[in-house]
Amino acid sequence: MITAKARAVDGPNKSFRAAEIKRRELDSHDVLIEIKYAGICHSDIHTAHGEWGPVNYPLVPGHEIAGIVTAVGPSVTKYRAGDRVGVGCMVDSCGECENCQNGEEQYCLKGKVDTYAGVDKYGEPTQGGYSTHIVVPEDFVLRIPDNIDLDVAAPLLCAGITTYSPLNHWGAGPGKKIAVVGMGGLGHMAVKIAHAMGAEVTVLSQSLNKKEDGFRFGADHYYATNDPETFNKLAGYFDLIINTVSAKIDINAYFSLLTLDGTLVNVGAPAEPLPVQVFALSSLRRSFAASMIGGIRETQEMLDFCAKHNIVPEIEVISANQIDEAYERVLASNVKYRFVIDISTM
């Protein structure tokens, strides 16, 4: 077994502590990665706090992982020692069902294996990227383009693909009017990506505090949702709305902003249910959908797209001892725009 240093949490109200975890010996198609950076996602916080259901503690979160290959199994063909790679929100799937065969492993009909808080094919709990090393099957490892630094690459493995996938699926591009609800870790990536796709991009944020940043990231318009006039002015305007907010909002008010056949896609994952008024949808044949990351093929496509268009997240690099503080600041919306852990501080 391979020993890795990590930061683990022992319960929903516990602080992170230094820990050692075991990584399996390399199987024939496995890749050993020395992790250099790990992003902090709001999903990490929901899971660590036990807000999405029972958790098998101790837990090592982290599914925005960037590092260097240090060893490979004897049958690995895609990677070799020294390669710059990433790992996102899943580390395995059945590989056999229709969805897996179509490159949609995130929707595996037998259930994907999450990077942390999951159970792998060996029956062992998975532990994530707040650690120095991880072992992953080669088919779930991504190649990081040379012109993207590893620290900014890490959040692309969740925040990047979580926003790229619905924009890609629902056809964001020239002539499309796209709104992004929220300007946090997910939202600022959605703005950058939608702008690069050629869409007209509007940010809908609680206030105008980040308006200057929004325009710098590529937004064409920026409105405050705490102003009731916003909803009157923009009624029936958007083809696609990407809701990145992980808190409960008045979702029906946002439906009114969609045009005929417009779609609102939730990528934020609030712990509370969102009540939906059917008439708010049926009046203009509007749709309410949700999206979850992307498959491995699409994630690599996203990385290459970001490399081509020089798209990287705005980050604040922290040490391993600052994780608890970072969680508090994320919950207080006090980060611009993604925390990334320097794993060398483990």
Score class of each variant (00 low, 15 high):
Val278Ala: 07
Ser291Thr: 02
Leu257Asp: 00
Lys248Trp: 07
Asp250Met: 09
Phe288Gly: 09
Ala253Pro: 01
Val317Ile: 15
Pro313Asn: 04
Thr263Ser: 13
Asn266Ala: 02
Val335Lys: 08
Leu257Lys: 06
Asn266Tyr: 02
Asn266Asp: 01
Arg297Glu: 13
Ala280Cys: 06
Leu258Phe: 03
Asp261Val: 08
Ile251His: 04
Glu328Ala: 12
Asn252Asp: 14
Arg286Met: 10
Ile293Met: 01
Phe279Ala: 10
Leu281Asn: 04
Asp250Gly: 10
Cys306Trp: 13
Gln322Pro: 05
Val330Thr: 10
Glu272Arg: 05
Ser291Gln: 05
Cys306Ser: 11
Gly268Cys: 08
Ser283Phe: 11
Ile318Ala: 08
Ile318Cys: 09
Phe288Thr: 06
Gly294Arg: 05
Ile315Lys: 01
Phe305Met: 08
Pro313Gln: 04
Leu258Thr: 02
Ala280Glu: 09
Ser291Val: 06
Ala307Met: 09
Arg297Lys: 15
Thr299Cys: 11
Ala289Asp: 09
Asn252Tyr: 08
Glu328Leu: 08
Glu316Gln: 15
Val330Leu: 15
Val265Glu: 01
Cys306Arg: 15
Pro275Leu: 00
Leu331Lys: 15
Ala253His: 01
Arg286Asn: 07
Asp304Arg: 15
Phe288Ile: 13
Arg297Ser: 04
Leu274Ala: 00
Leu331Thr: 06
Ser283Cys: 08
Gly295Glu: 10
Ile249Gln: 00
Val335Leu: 12
Glu301Ser: 14
Leu303Met: 10
Val330Trp: 07
Gly294Met: 04
Ser319Asn: 15
Arg297Gly: 02
Arg285Tyr: 11
Val265Leu: 02
Ala253Met: 06
Val265Tyr: 03
Glu325Trp: 05
Ala271Arg: 15
Ala332Glu: 09
Cys306His: 14
Glu298Asn: 11
Ile318Arg: 09
Ala269Glu: 01
Arg286Trp: 10
Phe288Met: 12
Glu316Lys: 14
Gln277Glu: 12
Asp304Met: 10
Phe305Gly: 05
Tyr254Ala: 11
Glu301Ala: 14
Glu298Asp: 12
Ala326Trp: 12
Ser282Ala: 13
Ala307Leu: 07
